[in-house]
Design a binder for these strands. Structure first.
Ligand SMILES: [Mn+2]
Ligand SMILES: [Mn+2]
Ligand SMILES: [Zn+2]
Ligand SMILES: [Zn+2]
Lengths: 144, 144
DNA sequence: TGGAAGTTTTAGATTAAATCTAATCTGACA
DNA sequence: TGTCAGATTAGATTTAATCTAAAACTTCCA
């Protein structure tokens, strides 16, 4: 992963590049697993423990505000995060809860009538069903 | 709201119609505000306090499992609930966070290639932007 | 009726996620 | 070098959700 690129993206968001902030951003850019704040906190401290819980949460909040990271809307206790690299949709597994990236494609807008006076900024598509792993497991299970 | 209909829908989900369960389901069917569990708990106890916190949560869990209620996936601390009356999409306001219902329409599926071995059950569309109220407020504010 | 077996509710304790607090540290810049 | 806004920190606090074990209902058959 290109350290310069991460540094640049932080600065483009008006954020200083601190070791803790860098570690959080780098972890998110290197993984597409949509980790929770607790997972990020643990991961960035595993190698070298210099990031407190409060800082992990503060930095995630700042990164989301700066538009560099998004909070993925899925049900469940803990929020999940995602570096905004390319536009994409999400697939959530009914069984294991895993959140996977899906190729992005344009979604038809709601009708002007249904939209009313609302101002549309973004449409997000969430697919649900069985991930490849769970689909296989489920099929083999039903066969027995 | 038709008490018979509520009772029937509970029974269709294999759930006994208890006063507490009925109150939770009725509240959800009578409101499209996507309340949190805490709001539901408070509301059903306002008139006549007979439902404990644990029961409110238990019943919401049972109703979701029975497919009569869905948990709406939005960011934020507390889960929000929605009686499954008709298919619809959701609009989430960037400013006030309100979750509003939007007319349902069919969403194009992902390509077979992108779907891979996954099994698709449902596609959910979430719009984001400004609700009518906040759009108006925002416009008048910028004008000044 | 009576009473066993299953289901539901309950108050309060517990856990988990996120935020707050107030003290301390850091580093860019004058 | 000194300043100071911004960043970090440990630990306390708040909030949402779940757990526990006892009590209260239902059901259903003797
Ligand atoms: Mn993603
Ligand atoms: Mn709805
Ligand atoms: Zn899965
Ligand atoms: Zn609004």
């Amino acid at each position: 992963m290109d350290a310069k690129a991460i540094k640049k993206s932080l600065e483009s968001g008006g954020l200083r590049c601190t070791p803790q902030r860098y570690a959080v951003m780098a972890f998110l850019m290197e993984h597409d697993i949509h980790p929770t704040a607790a997972e990020i906190f643990e991961a960035v401290n595993r190698a070298d423990p210099r990031c407190s819980r409060a800082t992990a949460y503060n930095n995630l909040r700042d990164l989301v505000q700066a538009g560099l990271v998004r909070e993925v809307a899925v049900e469940g206790r803990a929020a999940r995060f995602d570096a905004k690299v390319m536009r994409h949709h999400h697939f959530v597994c009914d069984i294991c809860g895993r959140v996977e990236d899906m190729d992005w494609y344009d979604v038809p807008h709601p009708s002007a009538e249904s939209l009313g006076k609302r101002i549309l900024r973004q449409s997000e598509l969430i697919f649900r069903g069985l991930c490849a792993k769970c689909a296989q497991w489920y099929a083999s299970r039903s066969a027995s």
